[in-house]
Design a binder for these strands. Sequence first.
DNA 1: CAGAATATCTGACTATTGTCAGACAAAATG
DNA 2: CATTTTGTCTGACAATAGTCAGATATTCTG
Lengths: 292, 292
Amino acid sequence: MYLDPVARLRRFNRAVTREVGALDTSFLGRGRPLGMARVLQLVQPEGTDLARIRDRLELDSGLMSRFLRALEREGLIATATDPADRRRRIARLTHKGQAEMMAYESIGHERAARLIARAGSRADEVVAAMDLIATLLNRDQLEIREADPDSSEALACQQAYFDEILARVAIARPEYFPLPDPGADSYRPPQGRFLIAWSDDLPVGCVALRPLDDTTAEVKRLWVHASARGQGLSRRLMTRVEAEARAIGYRQLRLDTNSALTEAIALYRATGWSDIPPYTTPPADVWMEKPL
Amino acid sequence: MYLDPVARLRRFNRAVTREVGALDTSFLGRGRPLGMARVLQLVQPEGTDLARIRDRLELDSGLMSRFLRALEREGLIATATDPADRRRRIARLTHKGQAEMMAYESIGHERAARLIARAGSRADEVVAAMDLIATLLNRDQLEIREADPDSSEALACQQAYFDEILARVAIARPEYFPLPDPGADSYRPPQGRFLIAWSDDLPVGCVALRPLDDTTAEVKRLWVHASARGQGLSRRLMTRVEAEARAIGYRQLRLDTNSALTEAIALYRATGWSDIPPYTTPPADVWMEKPL
DNA sequence: CAGAATATCTGACTATTGTCAGACAAAATG
DNA sequence: CATTTTGTCTGACAATAGTCAGATATTCTG
């Protein structure tokens, strides 16, 4: 198409600016200036580090401080010093603040639902497109954190992993893959791990580690969301899980996989894994090991 | 995935707000407040109606007026009363203003290029995702306008049309489809038409009309950009081209197409077209007619 | 043509956002 | 343990954005 990609990004920007502007003004509809509303939206009920909020909004510390005082005066948030580092402060939502947030949520929710409804039969495609763009824009903020293997996010990641496997590997008996995973307990500390990669509040990748014996652990459930592929996230997840394994004290890692998952296997080979004899049953048909 | 579409749209919004904000501040980099920069960007060299700018920016008339005067003092724009309605005023860019606009353009251009480069191997996919979203958001602003069949936009639309046909229809000899189209002259007024559907500055669809005899015209080149499908644009284009044909004075329309293009054929059948005997050669294998 | 409506402008304010220098306390560093 | 760095807060300003009530000229409407 004659219109170059840059021109198209700028068209995208124009379209989205209008939409975002409309959303902003609807927040103003709750009688609070935008700056304050934005801060409020980043304060979690359990408490959020102030520096984190400032970072994300790129706010001046003075301005931020005033917003917080104002929100405090309104009784929406409460602040306390972080016991771990008493220079830092943590803000958390009060009950009243949570109610206010719900009101904001429902304003945004309604608008968002309308927009998605407008996409009609292509709604899925539109949501996937938004995921792709948001993941790209958030790329620098991507964070890998430990998670409870039974949390809804972890289960969702594993479900996505299974769906992916089923789509790509011809499996005689899909019931090989139950969920929740019966071995999930072994993904817990101290001997196991379940790591999730977050892009904002969307889980875009995971990997699990479970003990085989005192010196050997197994890597399981390496998965990356479609929107985050091609950006080195698998590698980051593997690097991280290997570091965790080393820290726990394992001496080597193993994994089993299927030959249909070519990119994953290429990654393993490129990062020091080597083939070993079978140690599990189908649908696995590739087995690998890596010394730590 | 456990995160519902609405939550994902909001994540998208957060990501994009930051990006748009960054773009805004880069405009500030030229030492002009955002409001003024935004007004300046909407002033066209040939002149733009003030009300139009105010509408798009949803600005208070007082504020707007002050921005204009400041821009005038800087020598970037000049205003004059509209001869057609002397209450209205028209602002146009001076030479200095055009230079300034170019500087803004290049700032935006550079940022945009960097962002797309970041997408790496998935750049095409990201651009397609942006097209999809922008087209959805701009849907209400979609405009069908007549175009010169030799303009670069018209040629691009036709190229896209051929690419689409080649991808979907098994054609023995692709050289059946030359570009520029040898019959292009017949798409010109007074007897022919070439219509383009615009979403902002991206052509997202086209259709052509050419004379067969005094009372019969042929519809050609019906094409809709991937980002705009599923939203009834083909129907709008057909309705419009039929109206044009009626206005020119034709009594019936014809078209040829290929049976692989099922959606198009379904649309024709649903809107009063009926099958007729062949009047052209392969790759066409469906021929239709509609009385006006 | 009188009165209503429209488009812009001006002046007087208010609200919001951004900036900067310094104060203070708590880590971090050597 | 002195020094530096970090995170937050306050005060004093300044810039930017938004609001509102007329003023004025023009066009529209009946």
